[in-house]
């Protein structure tokens, strides 16, 4: 939330200083090139990776503080699925796991879940979003639901590795979270108030709606509350003291009454700055 109160104009000064040379790279070019490097790096990882034993992750870490926690957590049998670190990882991870768990449902249950998720669109209208602005993204979600009854797990991974599909789902879920915050200001304002006059609208614009800005705690809480049908556990893998990894649970404040059956239970593995999917 560091820059939630940032001013609108946030650029490094370059042009028109006395040593300015027209041949030098300007600000926009540097930004673009930096982004290209980041994008190229990110492209080396699939958006949604294969399911791997947690031991693979364990081998990446020499640090005993991390290793201990991974061991305690999974007892060696846990698995994880790596998500591309492009700033959307928490959103993609949540969306993928949501649909992956729904793969096990019967067609009728999928239809009920689809109706539920589509009914959340009214939240977007309440929050003041223009239908023209969101409809394209929601249509991707709807299309994915329609394909789900006949889909294999592999096909779902493939679907999510289509950047247009996963990006649309990311936008849809981001909008749901932002809409929930905007329609429940009393629940969130105390956390957004940074003493610098940041409004709910600004917070949502800069931290939730902005594409490729990482999800913070508040955004995840809002996402879980908005969806209403899924619980989220985030396993924190950091260097904090202690053998056990801290698990933070997000449970919807009001579980929806239109749904029957169990809640979808999603686990994410958080390492500082990045989320992957965790399979207990």
């Amino acid at each position: 939330m560091d820059d939630s109160a940032a001013t609108k104009a946030t650029c490094e000064t370059t042009a028109a200083t006395s040593d300015y040379e027209p041949d030098e790279l300007d600000d926009a070019t540097i930004l673009r090139l930096t982004q290209e490097i980041k994008d190229t790096e990110a492209l080396k990882t699939p958006l949604v990776g294969e399911l791997k034993p947690i031991s693979v992750l364990l081998d990446e870490y020499d640090d005993p503080a991390f290793r201990g926690k991974i061991k305690v957590l999974g007892g060696g049998n846990a698995k994880y699925r790596q998500i591309r670190g492009d700033g959307n990882c928490a959103w993609i991870a949540f969306a993928f796991r949501f649909f992956e768990l729904a793969l096990a449902y019967h067609a009728e249950e999928i239809e009920i879940l689809k109706k539920h998720v589509m009914s959340l669109t009214s939240l977007l209208d309440q929050a003041g979003y223009n239908e023209n602005g969101y409809i394209d993204f929601i249509e991707e979600t709807e299309a994915l639901f329609s394909k789900l009854p006949d889909m294999s797990a592999e096909a779902l991974v493939e679907e999510f590795n289509n950047i247009e599909v996963s990006s649309a789902l990311v936008v849809h879920f981001r909008l749901l979270a932002a809409a929930y915050v905007k329609t429940h200001p009393e629940d969130y304002m105390p956390f957004i108030d940074d003493g610098e006059g940041t409004t709910i609208e600004e917070y949502c614009n800069r931290q939730i709606e902005a594409f490729a800005v990482e999800a913070d705690h508040l955004a995840l809480s809002a996402l879980v509350n908005a969806v209403g049908k899924a619980e989220l556990g985030v396993v924190y893998m950091d260097r904090s003291a202690g053998e056990d990894a801290v698990v933070h649970s997000f449970v919807p404040m009001t579980t929806t009454t239109t749904m029957t059956g169990e809640q979808i239970k999603i686990d994410l593995l958080y390492r500082p700055g990045h989320y992957d999917i965790f399979y207990r």
């Binding site: 940032a6 650029c11 042009a15 600000d27 926009a28 979003y129 602005g133 990006s167 981001r174 614009n205």
Partner: peptide
Amino acid sequence: HPNISSQTGAICLDILKDKWSPVLT
């Protein structure tokens, strides 16, 4: 204008950079 390069027309505005959202048009 202070936030627009008088030489290149480059613009300094966050929503055109890292604060862009796909719902913007």
